[in-house]
Nucleic acid binder design. Sequence first.
DNA 1: CCAAAAGTGTTGGGACTACACCCATGA
DNA 2: TCATGGGTGTAGTCCCAACACTTTTGG
Lengths: 231, 231
Amino acid sequence: MPQPFEIPTLSLTVDCVVFGLDAEQEDLKILLIQRAIPPFEGKWALPGGFVRPGEAIEQAAFRELKEETGLEKVYLEQLFTFGDPRRDPRARIVTVAYYALVNLNEHTLKATTDARSAAWFSVNDVPELAFDHARIVEVALKRLKGKLRYEPIGFELLPKKFTMPQLQTLYELVLERRLDRRNFRKKILGMGLLVELDEVKQDSVGRAAKLYQFDERKYRKLKQRGFNFEV
Amino acid sequence: MPQPFEIPTLSLTVDCVVFGLDAEQEDLKILLIQRAIPPFEGKWALPGGFVRPGEAIEQAAFRELKEETGLEKVYLEQLFTFGDPRRDPRARIVTVAYYALVNLNEHTLKATTDARSAAWFSVNDVPELAFDHARIVEVALKRLKGKLRYEPIGFELLPKKFTMPQLQTLYELVLERRLDRRNFRKKILGMGLLVELDEVKQDSVGRAAKLYQFDERKYRKLKQRGFNFEV
DNA sequence: CCAAAAGTGTTGGGACTACACCCATGA
DNA sequence: TCATGGGTGTAGTCCCAACACTTTTGG
C-alpha cells in the first residue's frame, strides 16, 4: 500500500445504551446522563466517552459505564458503529455503540461524583437526545427485539431468581405483544433450561409465584450440541 | 465534560469480506488481495483501506471495493468493529469490517492497476491472512450463516434469474447441510416471493430447469405487514 | 369470603419431515 | 435409448394457537 496521502486520524468514542427492566412498574427503561458542558449542554445523552490509546474498545465501554454510572459486570454487546462525518459538530468523531442489559432493581445508580446526573427513562418516553443518540437508541431497541427471541439474553434483565410472570412480562414489554400464559410456560419450561426453586415470591396480593433460575451451564452444553433457544 | 487529557486520536480503516457464489463449481468463495508492501508483504488480506476525513464509513467501504476490485453496487452490510490495540503492528488502527455479497459469475475482477493481485478463494481453503483478518472472515461466515435463514439475502449471491436447484445449492453450501428438494421448493414457493419466468436454463446434461426471479417489491410490502422471511 | 394473580390440559389445524417415481433433455 | 438432473404428492408427526376453570394468598 503506497500511501500518497497522510494517514488520516480521527477520534473514537464508545456509547452505551443501557437497558434496565423496572419490574415493579412493568416498564423497559434506558439510562441517560445529562451533559454538563457544550456541545448539547444540559441535554440528555448516552453514557460514553473517548477510547484511550492502548485500550480495547469493549474495555473502554466497560470503563465508561463504571465511571459514569457505577455499573459493573453487566451484559455488554457491540451494537453498531456510527460514523457520519457531521454527527459531532466539533470534529470528526466516530462512535462504537454498545448495548448493555441490567436488572434495574438490583443496581442503584452511583452518586454522580462529577456533577453529571444519571437517570432512567422509559423507552416510550425518551427526552430529546444529544448528537445522533436518538438513532442509536432506535437501533439498539430493534436489536434487542430481534435478539430476545433467539438468544437467552432476557434473563440478564431479571434478578437471578425470577418468576414465570416476570419473564413473560419482560417478553411482552420488549416484543410489544401479549403472549398466552399457558403456551409461554410450556415453551419455556419445555426447553429444560430453568431450575425450579423451592421458594416463592410474595408481593402484596394474589397467589405467590414460584421462583426459577436460568441454568447457564446447561444452556451452553445444549448449544454445543446444536440446540437453538427460541421463544 | 471537562477534559483533563488530550483527546486521543487513532486511524480508522474499513475491511470487506466479499462473498461470491461460484455456481459452476458449487463453492462459496471470498475475495482476497495480495499485499504489496509491509507489514505482511506478500500475504493475502481483505480488501480495505483508510477512512478519509469527511467520508462516511460505509462510503469508504464502497470506495475501497471499487478501487481494489472494481466491484460496484453490491450488497454491503456492516459486520463488526475490531479494535484490539495490537491488531496492527504499526500503530493503533481500528477497523470497521463489512461483508458484501456478489454473484461471482457476473462480475469479472478488474485488472489490478496497482500491481496488487486479487483472487477468489474457497471459504474452505483460505490462505494465511494478514492482521486479524482470519478472525474477521470467521465472524463474517457466522453472520452470513445466521442471516441467510431469516433475511432474503441469498438472492444477492445469485444471478437475477436463477433456478430452484441453484438456490437450494446456495443454502446447502452456506448452511452446511443437505435439504430435501421437495420440501425446499414448497417452503420457498409458498412464500410467494418468486416469479416464475417463461424461460429455462439449459446447461449440458439433464432436464432444463425453470428460471425464477426474486420479487423485491412484493417482499418489502409483505415485510411491512409483519411477514418474516424464513427458510 | 372476596379479590387478585398463579397455575394447569386438551384439542384442532397448519407446518414440517420423510420418502420414490416420472419427466425432459442432450449426447 | 440412456444417463443426468428436474419436477412432483402424500401420509405421519409434531408443534403451535386457542381457550376457561381451579388454586393459592392476603386483606
